[in-house]
Nucleic acid binder design. Sequence first.
DNA 1: TATGAATGAGCATTCATTCAT
DNA 2: GATGAATGAATGCTCATTCAT
Lengths: 203, 203, 203, 203
Amino acid sequence: MATESAAPTAIPRGRGGDALTVAAREIFAERGYHGTSIRDIAKRAGLSLSALYYWHSSKQELFVGLIEDSVNDYFQTCDTALRSCGDDPAERLAAIVRATVDYRVRRRVESTIAAREIRNLEQPHAQRLADLRESATRLFQEIIDEGIARGVFGCAHATDARRAIQASCNAISQWYDPDGDVNPAELADRYVAIAERIVGLTR
Amino acid sequence: MATESAAPTAIPRGRGGDALTVAAREIFAERGYHGTSIRDIAKRAGLSLSALYYWHSSKQELFVGLIEDSVNDYFQTCDTALRSCGDDPAERLAAIVRATVDYRVRRRVESTIAAREIRNLEQPHAQRLADLRESATRLFQEIIDEGIARGVFGCAHATDARRAIQASCNAISQWYDPDGDVNPAELADRYVAIAERIVGLTR
Amino acid sequence: MATESAAPTAIPRGRGGDALTVAAREIFAERGYHGTSIRDIAKRAGLSLSALYYWHSSKQELFVGLIEDSVNDYFQTCDTALRSCGDDPAERLAAIVRATVDYRVRRRVESTIAAREIRNLEQPHAQRLADLRESATRLFQEIIDEGIARGVFGCAHATDARRAIQASCNAISQWYDPDGDVNPAELADRYVAIAERIVGLTR
Amino acid sequence: MATESAAPTAIPRGRGGDALTVAAREIFAERGYHGTSIRDIAKRAGLSLSALYYWHSSKQELFVGLIEDSVNDYFQTCDTALRSCGDDPAERLAAIVRATVDYRVRRRVESTIAAREIRNLEQPHAQRLADLRESATRLFQEIIDEGIARGVFGCAHATDARRAIQASCNAISQWYDPDGDVNPAELADRYVAIAERIVGLTR
DNA sequence: TATGAATGAGCATTCATTCAT
DNA sequence: GATGAATGAATGCTCATTCAT
């Protein structure tokens, strides 16, 4: 008791909010929304349950915060990438694939959560995220359709091509090891190549 | 109200087990393992909670039963398909892609559950399924490696090619609508074509 | 199925009742009334739950049957022993101690159950057994009081003497090992001697 | 009704733990471990079920806490009593009998629970308590053996003498009425006298 | 900023019991 | 004599949440 100045946890006073976000990210990723209890989160953050409620109004709100942050990030990334492109479909396809790979690597954990757990979001969050996801799909689809229309892509089923490309990119966050020996830029190159083959890029 | 004579639950005595399996499949798919309560399952099956425990010894066992059935089915499907092939890598790749698409369509619901919820399995089930999944991966990889070795496939990164093909096929169960207008055979053709492009099949 | 003539359990058809009684006796003794489930009993007896209900109308009735049998046995034993005595208090004390030791050894298991679990009997059984127990106490007390009145016993607190003697005898069923090297007759001799000391038998 | 202002549960905030311990002691004594539900305990304590789990991690832990407290108390009592004795076996026997009577009166309720319900303790608690009980037995036995060796006690069967003395003392908690007219000191005198007779103290 | 104490609703599971065969 | 299938009530326990401090 006396000189207990050295706190048992490494969380600096006033930094509880950050600790909670980090802990929540980890545990939601490991066990999913329903498999995670807020007690677990508070404990891993080294705080009391009540402290969690000081920073976040509910489990759902804490969860939504994580996901929305991450999804908004994705859209910003795509938007920026496409803005600095011309209108060449091949260039645009490469850009959006790079943006997607980048996101899946950079936000590996949250993007996995987001992919698996949208159904556990309450309205209106669920709808908002579904809409965002839909927008991403539309971006991909428009680029592919345009490429086919212009004859620079040659593939029979544009929708399946789009699905295959998205699925391939999205899966990255499930196996990517940040400590492994493939760097993100190299990885993006590879997935651009795969995407180009799927759409049948003519040279 | 009106025609209340027709009971809402028409489960013939002794058929409770079937009703429970069907209900469990649906609800686990909708809400995930932790999001599903066995009360919900029993209710949808039109039985009491206790009846569920007459047929299944625990929530986990009920869950495992569903998944293992389905995963075993997949392996049998692959095995059969590859057995009736020669050793031509192109033929073998087509066969395993067809088997995978077939499985993802036929067992759409369980395969989605299996993909998302292995982490919720207790040991030793988790290990067994992880092993099976690993075997599937190996089957794909061997075919691709062999194709490259023989020069019939031309692609730079065999592992990424395999991941892209698997991810594309697996995603099917997330969007496929059995009442839609693409039949499974046609779908398999399309994904074989995508796979062939990804591996760079030479003619 | 076909020729399944050899039953999996050694219980001869029609002997289910006995098997249940034996199983119940063992398990009630091991785990107490509330700690015992009728499923456990049926399982140990090698019968189905429903079979238990064929032979016994309820858990309570099965339980009561065991105890009452045993307690009635005790009273018969005491009664017989005292009938063949004269009216000498020393002789009578020896007789009732012998009867008690005999019972505690012969009915070791049930008598332990009875001692510990009367409170779990429903009325009117609880009252009946309490009355019987009370009668036994009275028998002991009358003998001791008479011995003191006649001057053949010399002790200051007749009630405590009686309690000590009964407690000593009753405890036998908690430690007696039927396969040990003290036979019941020898044991009875020892406890008669202890009782005589407690009451202060004058030679 | 009338004076409804006085709440039925007057548990001051922060004192829930005490209320629970008291309630648990009473109900476990009345109905035994398996006969007691934690809902009953919480209700009698005037708290919610959840509050019980705030203070105690499980039913078992709550139960163990009660019993271990009490058994440890017994050993401390015996130890203190024997320490302030010389090595005269008669003096030591009197001391340990007094300590035992004292404990059985002072901790009437818990000691009854402890006696009846050790089998319901999980490991390692069961073993610890069995060991403690064994130690008590050894204390008694050593005193008696020493008394016989020195010729100050005269009895044929030392083990049975010990059992009789312990059983007599232990039974006290089953009938003793704290509001009755025998005070503990007087009671201890009586049981010392009984013990001396059982071991055959020479003068 | 944070905590300790408390709650009510819900959880998976087990209970004694019943009924049709 | 015996079983398989089913039930409603209760069990021990965990959940997200609240509130006074």
